[in-house]
């Protein structure tokens, strides 16, 4: 697996990395030397062709397909059920807010939003901290068992967490944490992906010389971590935090097992809307709008960083 996934990264060209395109990307200085001939101006063929009308048309179509379900749920949420079932259906948002109020009331959305913010925030912070520490150790420190532990971590990235749900449920029941927020926070507090992501970033972005200089100056590892590693890791930490926040916000399987309707996260609330007890499409979609809006705002503001993070993670793993 690792050989298959790391190889494409070997000859990334600096002009593709695009300075404007990857804010907070790793310092790419060492890379520049590798491909001296790859200056930007005018080239034909390959990936550098100028896009034609057809390309734009297809991409605009893809954008519409991506965005349509969001648009439609806003349209539906602001109309009554009777109106959205009309032929032809409405295509513009109406002015109704009744569905939002009903959804909030029936599905405990207010509490769900607070809970999801707490859960996702805690998980994001925990993941970033623990994974940066471990990622640094795997990237830059030599110690016995390093290779084996790293392989173990990477191998488990392939195993879906779904498969451990039953013991997890039994554990939480035993601890008396069923329906408590810690039951959804603790199991996702660290991820193997996070360690791998930080390791890949730090092994590139952090020159060994800097750490050695710190050691020569007599700094302890923790001092080095604080003054040298953290500042260098900050961009990747931000991306990992964003990705983790989104993933946790959208987590579905475990939360619907661990939590109930009176202490829900957003997905648990949405699940109960879709449980068949609310026959009103408009109310259901109003609930999904309320539950999705916060992530969409984050995505709208920081979408470019998220794209950069996924693409960087992709080349490396």
């Amino acid at each position: 697996m690792s050989s298959a996934t790391t190889s494409p990264g070997k000859d990334v060209r600096i002009d593709d990395a695009g300075t404007s395109d990857r804010p907070g990307g790793p310092p790419r200085l060492p890379r520049m030397r590798r491909t001296p001939g790859s200056r930007r101006p005018r080239r034909r063929g390959g990936g550098r062709d100028k896009a034609g009308v057809f390309t734009y048309a297809v991409l605009i179509l893809a954008t519409l397909v991506s965005a349509f379900p969001f648009y439609w749920s806003i349209v539906a949420a602001t109309h009554s059920n009777a109106e959205i079932n009309a032929v032809p259906p409405p295509f513009l948002p109406g002015g109704g807010t009744g569905s939002f109020e009903q959804a909030a009331e029936q599905a405990n959305i207010g509490k769900a939003l607070v809970n999801s913010t707490i859960v996702s925030g805690t998980v994001a912070i925990g993941t970033v901290l623990a994974c940066t520490l471990a990622g640094f150790a795997f990237a830059k420190l030599r110690f016995r068992g390093r290779g084996a532990l790293l392989s173990l971590t990477v191998a488990t990235m392939m195993i879906p967490p779904q498969l451990g749900l039953i013991p997890l449920y039994m554990m939480m029941a035993k601890l008396g944490w069923a329906n408590e927020l810690q039951s959804v926070i603790l199991p996702t507090l660290v991820t193997a992906f996070g360690v791998f992501f930080m390791r890949q970033y730090l092994s590139e972005a952090l020159p060994d010389e800097l750490i050695e200089a710190g050691r020569v100056d007599g700094a302890s590892y923790f001092r080095i971590f604080r003054s040298i590693v953290l500042p260098a890791a900050r961009p990747a930490m931000a991306v990992l935090g964003l990705l983790t926040f989104m993933t946790t916000w959208n987590d579905f399987f475990w939360p619907i097992i661990a939590l109930s309707q009176d202490n829900p996260t957003v997905q648990v609330a949405i699940n109960s809307l879709g449980g068949g007890y609310v026959p009103d499409q408009s109310v259901i979609l109003a609930g999904t709008v309320l539950g999705t809006l916060p992530v969409l705002v984050v995505f709208g503001l920081l979408g470019r960083q998220i794209v950069g993070g996924i693409m960087r993670g992709a080349v490396k793993g």
């Binding site: 991506s66 959208n250 999705t292």
Partner: peptide, 16 residues
């Protein structure tokens, strides 16, 4: 734009 659907949850997307 093409990544937008990735930001939604299974639950929300399915209901829509």
């Amino acid at each position: 734009a093409v990544l937008l659907p990735y930001a939604t949850s299974v639950a929300a997307a399915t209901l829509v």
